[in-house]
Every structure is written in C-alpha cells, then in structure tokens.
Amino acid sequence: MTPFTEDVVRVLKSIPEGIVVTYGQVARLAGSPRAARQVVRILHSMSEKHNLPWHRVVNARGEINVPGEEAKAEQRRRLREEGVSFTEDGRVDWNKITQKADQPKKG
C-alpha cells in the first residue's frame, strides 16, 4: 500500500457510526485534498478486504454515488440504520449530521 492509501484506510476506519463524510473530505484528511477520485478507487478495491465503512462516504452534494441500484439501496439502508436522515430529494441531510456530530459522546 502507498502511504496515501494507508492514510485513507486509517481515515475511513475512524469515521464513527452515524456520521457521513465526502470523498473530498477523506482525501483532505489523508493529506491530498485533490485526490477524491483516488478515495473512490480505494473504497472500491479495498472495502471488503479491510472492512471499511464504505457506506459512510458520499459525494460532495450528499448523494449516494455507488454504481448499481442494489448497492445504492444497501448504502441508504445502512445509513438509515445508523440514524442518518435524508432530504426529500434523497440527499444526506447535512444539518442533522452536523447536529449529531456536535453532541457529546456517551461514556
């Protein structure tokens, strides 16, 4: 694995349940802000092997952007199970994600 790939995997594994990020945010946190497409490639090729929470990553518009209707339905189902809300037009409701992230952690 390249250092960037290792950093992307680390960032992805750190995304808490119920939180959604964009491909660009992952790239920026991994040290290469212009590498969102690389994040997509890494997710596609390594999610299963590294048990990555691929479903917690969406495009910059808050849209589910995985190929295939079955995969889109699975991502939406997983996110809803984690308490993620969607707007009427099917995008992640960023306002509710932000509120959830700002709440203190239990424990």
Results as ranks from 00 to 15, higher is better:
Thr2Ser: 15
Thr2Leu: 05
Thr2Glu: 11
Pro3Glu: 14
Pro3His: 07
Phe4Tyr: 10
Phe4Trp: 04
Thr5Pro: 00
Thr5Ser: 02
Thr5Arg: 04
Asp7Thr: 09
Arg10Thr: 14
Val11Glu: 02
Leu12Thr: 02
Leu12Lys: 01
Lys13Phe: 06
Ser14Gly: 05
Ile15Cys: 02
Ile15Thr: 05
Pro16Thr: 15
Gly18Tyr: 00
Ile19Tyr: 06
Val20Gly: 03
Val20Gln: 01
Val21Lys: 04
Val21Trp: 01
Thr22Lys: 00
Thr22Gln: 00
Thr22Pro: 00
Gln25Gly: 04
Val26Ile: 05
Leu29Gly: 00
Leu29Phe: 03
Ala30Lys: 03
Gly31Phe: 05
Gly31Asp: 04
Gly31Ile: 06
Ser32Met: 01
Ser32Asp: 03
Ser32Phe: 01
Pro33Cys: 03
Arg34Ala: 05
Ala35Ile: 00
Ala35Glu: 10
Ala36Ser: 08
Val39Asn: 02
Val39Asp: 02
Val40Gly: 06
Val40Pro: 00
Arg41His: 10
Ile42Leu: 03
Ile42Ala: 00
Leu43Gln: 02
Leu43Pro: 06
His44Pro: 01
His44Glu: 09
Ser45Cys: 07
Ser45Thr: 14
Met46Ser: 08
Met46Pro: 00
Ser47Val: 12
Ser47Gly: 04
Ser47Tyr: 08
Glu48Ser: 12
Glu48Asn: 09
Lys49Asn: 10
His50Gln: 06
His50Phe: 11
Asn51Ser: 10
Asn51Asp: 15
Asn51Gln: 14
Pro53His: 08
Trp54Ser: 13
Trp54Asn: 03
His55Pro: 03
Arg56Met: 10
Val57Asp: 01
Val57Gly: 00
Asn59Gln: 06
Ala60Thr: 10
Ala60Lys: 06
Gly62Cys: 09
Glu63Asp: 13
Ile64Cys: 13
Ile64Glu: 05
Pro67Phe: 09
Pro67Lys: 14
Pro67Ile: 12
Gly68Leu: 11
Gly68Ile: 04
Glu69Ser: 14
Glu70Met: 11
Ala71Glu: 15
Lys72Leu: 11
Lys72His: 11
Glu74Pro: 09
Glu74Tyr: 12
Gln75Cys: 12
Gln75Ser: 09
Arg77Cys: 12
Arg77Trp: 14
Leu79Val: 14
Leu79Ser: 12
Arg80Pro: 08
Glu81Arg: 13
Glu82Pro: 13
Val84His: 07
Val84Tyr: 08
Ser85Cys: 14
Thr87Ala: 06
Thr87Met: 08
Gly90Thr: 06
Gly90Asp: 12
Arg91Phe: 06
Arg91Lys: 14
Arg91Asn: 12
Val92Phe: 08
Val92Ala: 07
Trp94Pro: 14
Asn95Thr: 14
Thr98Pro: 01
Thr98Ala: 05
Thr98Lys: 08
Lys100Pro: 07
Asp102Ala: 13
Asp102Asn: 14
Lys105Ile: 15
Lys106Cys: 05
